[in-house]
Design a protein around this nucleic acid. Structure first.
Lengths: 330, 330
DNA sequence: TTGAAAGCGCTAACAG
DNA sequence: CTGTTAGCGCTTTCAA
C-alpha cells in the first residue's frame, strides 16, 4: 500500500489541535473559519513543511489542477512561444501543464492524450493531426481547445493565414511572376489545408500557375531537398509551408548559385525566423505567442463554466511582411 | 465529494464477473493470474474504454508516473531539443512530463517546483538558477537531475564548454587578435560561470586581453544593444554567451557597417542557430538533444534504484565549429 | 489463482 | 465555527 510521502494533513491537525477537516478548510475555505484558527493551522503547516498531496485532492474532488498541451514538434520554432505564454497564463490560474510532443505522429498524439486524460482538467491541442472523430470523443470527455484546427462546436483559436497568403500571391503577381510553386506541408494539418485552399482560390483569381510540391514534415532538410523539384518546375517564385522550410530552400538555392531575390523570389510562413536569414525572409505573420495566451484563456474559461452555450472561437488574422526575398520576376 | 469521472475498476469488475483486485492485477501483475482471466478482463476493459485513474493509483502506490522538467526559457533555442528528447525517453518509460518555464526567475522556478513537487516522481532542472540550498533541499525529497549545473552528490549532465571555449581563444590568438570581449550571460547560470572561468584561464595562458560585458538575459536585443560597448572597448573579436546573443551582435554590427569577419570576428555558443546566420556563425557546439536524453535516462535510473551509491554524472565535451565569422585580426 | 478488506490523503455533507 | 464520517478509485496484504 501507499507509503508515507511526507507531512500529511493529519500531522498538521494533530499538532494544531484541530480536526483534519479544519486543516483542509484552512487552505481551501479560510473564510469558513475563525481567522485565528486559520493562522494557527497555517503556521503549524508552514513549520512542518506541509504540502498538500495533489493526487489525494484530485481523487476527492475530481479536479486535478493540471492541463495538457500537445504539439507536433516542440523543436519547430512556431511552438515554443505558444507553449511559453500558455504555461504562463496557466500558472496564474494555478494550473500545472503537461507537455506532449507527438512527433507529428497521429498515434503518438492519441497515446499521449489517453495517458494524460486521467489527470488533466482539459487539453490544448495545437496543430492536431488527429481524426475529427477522436477529437470529438475527447472533447466529449473533457474541455478541449484547438489551435489551428477548426471543428464545429469546439473552442479554438485559429491563425488565419488566408489574409497573408492572398497578399503574398498578389505581391508576386504585381511583381510579374506568372508561375509559382507552393511547398506544402503535412497533409493532415489544418493550416496546410487552409493554405492550399487559399492558394487555389488566389491563383484562380489572378490567373497564376501554382504547382504544388509536397515536402511532408516541415524541416530544413525537406526544404533544401525540395529545390531540385523547384528548379525543375520552372517557377520563378515559391511560397513555403513555413519559415523552417524556407530556410532550407534558401540554402538549397544558394548551393545551386541561384540568387534570391534576383533569380528567384521566396515567401515563408509563420515569421518565426524573422531577420535570421540573409536576405531577410519575406514571410506571413503568425502570432504564436498570442495564440498560446488565447488558447489558455479559452480553456480556463471553459473549465470555469463547463456548459458554454456556444463554443468561443478566436481568429487571429495574418498579413504579409515584405522583406528582402521578393522582387520583380527575372 | 468526488464525482464519477468515467469507467472505473469496479465497472469492469462487475461486467467481467471478477473482483476489483483481479481487474487491478490484470493490468499491473498479469503473471499472477490465469491467462484466460487476464484476457477476459482486458477485453471488457477495452470495450468499456476503461482508463486507470492516475490520481487513485498514485494515492495507493505513492508513485505518480510523472516527472517535471524546468527550463529558464523554452523559447531559447537551446531548450526545445532538450525537452523533446527528454519527453520522448520519458514516454517510453511510461512517464508523463510536466513542463515549467521559469522565465529566468528564481522565484518562479521555486514556485513551480513546489507546485509540481506533490505530483512528480522526480525533477530535471535545466540550467537552474536556484540557490544551492534550495536544490539540495529538493533533492532530499525526490530524485533530481541537473543539467548544466554541478552540485556534489547530485546526478547531473553537463555540457562542458571549456573545451570549445579554449579552442575559441586559441583560434583567435592564432588569428592575431590581441583584445577580445566576452559577452557574459545570466550571472546565476552555471554555464556562464564556467565560461567566465575558462576564459580567464585561457586569457592568462595566451596573454590576450579579455573585457567582460554583461548582457544579462540572453536575447537578440541584448546582443544588438551590446554593440555600443563592444565598439567602445576597441576589441577586434567577441565571444558571446550564446548564439541568440551573437545573432543580435551580428545585427548591431551590420547597423554600424562593421563587416564580419573582415573588421570583426565573432564566436557564438551552443550552436543553435547553425547555418541560419549570414555569414555562418562560428560557434561552440552544445548537444542539447543528447543532454535531454541523458538527463531522462539518469532520472529514470535513479527512480528505479533510489539508493545509488554515488550520483551518476555525465559530461558532454564541446568543441569549436569554425565557420565564417572568424578570420585574421584587421 | 482469486477474493475480502483495509487504507493511501484529502474533501464535503451533515451535524452540532 | 468546527468535528465526525463517509467516501474518491486503486493497490495490496492476508486468507481461502
Amino acid at each position: 500500500m501507499g507509503q508515507r510521502v511526507g507531512v500529511t494533513l493529519g500531522d498538521v491537525a494533530g499538532l494544531a489541535g484541530v480536526s483534519r477537516a479544519t486543516v483542509s478548510r484552512a487552505f481551501t475555505r479560510p473564510e469558513m473559519l475563525n481567522t485565528e484558527t486559520v493562522e494557527r493551522v497555517r503556521g503549524v503547516a508552514e513549520r512542518l513543511g506541509y504540502v498538500g498531496n495533489q493526487a489525494a485532492r484530485a481523487l476527492a474532488t475530481g479536479r486535478f489542477g493540471n492541463i495538457a498541451v500537445i504539439v507536433p514538434d516542440i523543436a519547430n520554432p512556431f511552438f515554443p512561444p505558444l507553449v511559453r505564454t500558455l504555461q504562463s497564463v496557466a500558472e496564474e490560474a494555478e494550473l500545472a501543464v503537461f507537455l506532449g510532443d507527438s512527433d507529428e505522429s497521429l498515434e503518438r498524439e492519441a497515446k499521449l492524450v489517453t495517458r494524460l486524460g486521467s489527470q488533466v482538467e482539459g487539453f490544448v491541442l495545437a496543430s492536431s493531426r488527429q481524426s475529427e472523430e477522436l477529437i470529438r470523443n475527447l472533447a466529449h470527455t473533457r474541455p478541449v481547445v484547438l489551435v489551428n484546427r477548426d471543428l464545429d462546436g469546439i473552442p479554438r483559436v485559429l491563425i488565419d493565414s488566408s489574409g497573408g497568403m492572398t497578399e503574398a500571391v498578389m505581391l508576386l503577381k504585381n511583381l510579374n511572376h506568372r508561375h509559382l510553386v507552393s511547398l506544402a506541408g503535412p497533409r493532415d494539418s489544418w493550416s496546410d489545408q487552409q493554405r492550399r485552399t487559399t492558394l487555389a482560390e488566389a491563383s484562380a483569381t489572378t490567373g497564376l500557375t501554382v504547382d504544388i510540391i509536397e515536402v511532408g514534415r516541415p524541416t530544413y532538410t525537406a526544404g533544401r531537398d525540395a529545390v531540385t523539384a523547384i528548379t525543375a518546375s520552372g517557377a520563378t517564385a515559391a511560397i513555403a509551408f513555413d519559415d523552417v522550410v524556407s530556410q532550407g530552400v534558401l540554402a538549397g538555392l544558394a548551393l545551386r548559385n541561384i540568387s534570391v531575390p534576383q533569380d528567384f523570389s521566396l515567401i515563408g510562413c509563420d515569421d518565426t525566423l524573422a531577420l535570421l536569414t540573409t536576405p531577410a525572409l519575406t514571410s506571413i505573420s503568425a502570432a504564436s505567442a498570442p495564440a498560446g495566451r488565447a488558447a489558455a484563456h479559452l480553456l480556463i474559461k471553459t473549465l470555469q463554466s463547463p456548459t458554454t452555450p456556444t463554443a468561443p472561437r478566436i481568429t487571429i488574422p495574418t498579413h504579409l511582411i515584405t522583406r528582402a526575398t521578393t522582387t520583380q520576376a527575372p
